[in-house]
Design a protein around this nucleic acid. Structure first.
Length: 269
DNA sequence: AGCTCATGGCGAG
DNA sequence: TCGCCCTGAGCTG
């Protein structure tokens, strides 16, 4: 259940656990048996994230391209690897640590050129220092598509998912149904800067927290609450619950087959 | 045991 | 826009 912050975290964890040493690769489930066999025993030279794509590099020049999709997961453990639980597409292990990949959208062996092609069709990633926010602005300004859809489009912006979309629009008082062409340059600059900050915090915390200190239930004199997805947020999955700032019921609707959340009062325009 | 849902993305039409 | 792919958790009965 990952947005870009989790993928960047997994890249760092992969480097720490396996980088610079030979690693055993296997596919307990069997669906990646051929690919695992090709890199089995090779040195893992590095791990990289671009948007929601994870790339594991091996000494022979091959890359394992991983995309977790909606419910994939990559989990780490210490010591010798136990019997696999559930459907493990790929297991990495070196005796000191192991990692299990389950339910990915993509797990494939690719070349360096193919890796570059994947990155080339993505928009700028707020978590990468080489990101160019102007590239996103060129696709947003003048577009008749809604801001909600544009922020989720990985060709426009890489790594932002349904939670960051809902939260960043709330934090800037932007109605998700506005067209991209109605966004001002100043609004976009502020949204981008906020995504950079929020997503970096997300990498550190391993969860998405977007509520400013002055709006926490404690600060607002309201009863404490727990969001059921592991982070403190304003509107994501808070349909029909009171907005943390104005008390109006948070609204939800299906938008391009994803759940959209917003406050109709705080995000009027 | 059998739903339903999820922080994604692709290709067909 | 729709259907489909991937898996597990959290219900319901």
């Amino acid at each position: 259940m990952p947005e870009g912050h989790i993928i960047h975290r997994l890249a760092a964890e992969s480097s720490t656990a396996f980088g610079g040493r030979p690693v055993r690769a296997s596919s307990p489930q069997g669906r990646f048996a051929d690919g695992a066999a090709l890199v089995d025993g090779q040195v893992l030279t590095g791990a990289e994230a671009t948007g929601k794509h994870l790339f594991l590099g091996f000494e022979g020049g091959a890359w394992v391209h991983i995309h977790l999709g909606l419910y994939g997961g990559l989990t780490f453990g210490e010591g010798a690897a136990p019997e696999p639980v559930g459907l493990v597409r790929l297991r990495l292990a070196n005796g000191d640590a192991y990692a299990d990949l389950r339910g990915p959208n993509t797990c494939a062996l690719i070349t360096g050129a193919e890796k570059a092609a994947v990155a080339a069709r993505l928009g700028p990633d707020p978590l990468r220092t080489d990101a160019d926010p102007d590239a996103a602005w060129r696709r947003i300004s003048g577009s008749r598509t809604t801001v909600a859809a544009l922020l989720m489009d990985q060709k426009v912006l890489a790594g932002v998912g349904n939670v960051y979309r809902a939260e960043v629009l709330f934090r800037h008082g932007i109605n998700p149904h506005r067209a991209g062409r109605d966004l001002t340059r100043a609004e976009w600059d502020a949204v981008w800067a906020d995504l950079v900050a929020l997503m970096h915090e997300g990498v550190g915390a391993g969860r998405i927290d977007t509520v400013r200190p002055e709006h926490t239930p404690e600060a607002m004199g309201r009863p404490p609450r727990v969001d059921d997805h592991g982070g403190e947020v304003y509107v994501y999955r808070r349909a029909a619950m009171p907005c943390l700032i104005c008390g109006t019921d948070v609204r939800t609707e299906e938008h391009a087959s994803r759940n959209l959340f917003w406050c109709p009062r705080c995000q009027q325009t």
